[in-house]
Design a protein around this nucleic acid. Structure first.
Lengths: 362, 362
DNA sequence: CTGTTAGCGCGTTCAA
DNA sequence: TTGAACGCGCTAACAG
């Protein structure tokens, strides 16, 4: 059965259907748009038959060109590798489905240049709006978007100088939640590990909230104050990353021994790493496993924002983001803008949920 | 700085630019298409200025409508949750970039109905071709595609009765590779765990190759023959899944005790589970962890086709698919078809790579 | 070198 | 109820 795939036999157009049905294009158009009340049953039947016979499917491009709207929206994501992104996408798709929109997914693969190109492309294809979860966009890149250009909604991160709707995690509350959890469980040293801030506002916000929660603890006058540190880990630069991890190792060693411990598990200060997101957490877990072996969790506790599916398997505590809802809300916002809503730019901050697992319990 | 996002001020068209530059549309069109040699330097400068002043961006929809090609291809995927899919996507994107194509990603989220809708939509948007990695499509669904319709390339799975190019893993070799590895490492009982076959050819092929490799072992007359079993695990039906897992548990218990062992680790028959893909492997790992605790790997070995990032963390042996290349090749095939290549339908089977980790070593 | 003309496939008056 | 004619934004064929 190795038939040769044959060449495409030019699709039928509305004109073909009109001729086949022995009528004009207008009637076909009306039929397609459901204006049945304006068509005699007889003509409708003929049109139906003609369409079926020709296997006709209206050209959406042409329709869009005509009516000036194509029901297309762009979804620009920075990293599909991050489970967070895929989960948000589910919400986006569900909402689009409900609202009659069609999402075009564009994956920048963490490359700023790609991002720029896709944004350009979405613009020239005249999508009605875009949802952007981007890495390095600055205000200029998004110029054609938001304010003066097509409607835009930002997800997870805001862009300096760009006034648009934004929806994402309540980063402040989430980081505070995680930090409090670690403090309540008696950790002595906590490292907040985050990727280079760059233009990503959520990273900065999470780190700031972490530091704030750590100093709030000081002022509360707990019996012994825990120490907080921030480490910036660049996942895209192997060499730099290894260097940072080695440095972290030394610091952890020092913390383990500071309270006169022998260095064995549970004898020195208790150490926790607070990963700002799942990719960081994964990298840390892999590193810790390499360094301490399979029972690395007895030496260092790991807590992460994001709840990738391996978290359950590894038993690390996480703060799960309401990803589905984030995506859903983003589309709702965008839809309102497309429909012409003119209110001031809105922020929608959704709460994270602490999922306690074995890793952070005493 | 809570400025109100203002309404879209109608984008400039080619006519606007022509007027602004004091010339005709044709010249603008020529400029846009890089036919510089046919334009006086003076006119070109005026056009350039006009374009900049109006921030003009050509409408791709209109262009596509005119020239009959829009450089768009559809990428229909069944499940973005599966890391395999995302990895393939990377290859697809790279190839598209290189060939000047624009991939529209459509995510069916494992729903056959979604799949149908997206396929329909891609068709009506007149994409030049589609890459399909689908769940339940049958020949009818893909009718508009492949043979008589727009060019199509299948990824990972073929569809009965549909004659098109296909690219994916060499399932037979991969399953055999995994099975041989388990046999060589002295496992006594091996369960091949796979999702319901449905229309997914790769599942069937892998299972068949597993069984074949198991019986080939018999004929080789090894000192003691291992027993092979197949389990179908439906991840989408929680109740059914739990039932199947409980059954599997009992069978494993029996195997553990069969050689007079006490049931303690390492005393009975050695047991391995061979997961047909990553989602199955994850589900199995979670279950085993629940049942046996953190040291579940001392009781049961896990091997999986697909190499998700938690595999390294958990230390399970895997067979990594050449995902990037699969995606890249798929686009190359499709591109050839779009350009009119007429050869018979081709199959491209790429080899998997065995990555041995602690889980399956004696 | 440049502009005019005629569509691409479709929706929308407007008159019949 | 029906259909002819015009135009959406753009490209291509043909003059000048």
């Amino acid at each position: 059965m190795s038939t040769t795939p044959q060449t495409t036999p030019r699709r039928a157009t509305i004109t073909d259907v009109a001729r086949e049905a022995g009528t004009g294009k207008t009637s076909i158009s009306r039929y397609l748009n459901g204006e049945m009340s304006v068509l005699s049953a007889e003509l409708r039947a003929r049109i139906e038959a003609a369409i079926a016979r020709l296997d006709y499917q209206p050209n959406q491009m042409a329709r869009g060109l005509k009516r000036g709207r194509n029901r297309l929206i762009g979804m620009l994501v920075a990293d599909l590798t991050n489970p967070y992104t895929v989960e948000v996408l589910q919400g986006v798709e569900a909402a689009c489905h409900a609202l009659g929109l069609m999402p075009l997914i564009c994956h920048a693969a963490n490359e700023v240049e790609m991002e720029r190109r896709y944004l350009q492309l979405l613009t020239t294809y005249r999508v009605e709006g875009v949802i952007v979860n981007a890495l390095g966009v600055r205000e200029e890149t998004l110029r054609p978007v938001g304010g003066g250009g097509i409607p835009a909604v930002l997800v997870d991160r805001s862009v300096d100088g760009l006034v648009t709707d934004m929806v994402g995690l309540d980063n402040h509350a989430a980081a505070e939640l995680g930090t409090r959890h670690l403090l309540d469980n008696g950790f002595d040293d906590i490292w907040f590990v985050v990727q280079p801030f760059e233009q990503v506002s959520s990273r900065r916000l999470r780190e700031a909230a972490f530091r704030e929660a750590m100093s709030a603890q000081d002022r509360r006058g707990e019996q012994h104050a825990a120490r907080g540190h921030t480490v910036v880990l660049d996942l895209s630069d192997m060499v730099e990353m290894e260097r940072t991890l080695a440095e972290l190792d030394r610091a952890i060693d020092a913390a383990h021994n500071v309270r006169g411990g022998t260095g064995a598990a549970g004898h020195g200060g208790r150490v926790a790493l607070f990963a700002a997101n799942a990719p960081v957490a994964l990298r840390l877990a892999l590193h810790l496993k390499t360094r301490y072996g399979d029972d690395w969790q007895t030496r260092v506790a790991l807590l992460s924002i994001d709840d990738p599916d391996w978290a359950e398997l590894t038993g690390i505590t996480t703060i799960r983001q309401p990803t589905y809802e984030i995506g859903y809300r983003a589309v709702e916002f965008l839809h309102e803008r497309i429909e012409g809503v003119q209110t001031a730019a809105r922020d929608c901050l959704l709460p994270g949920e602490l999922i306690v697992r074995a890793s952070t319990l005493r």
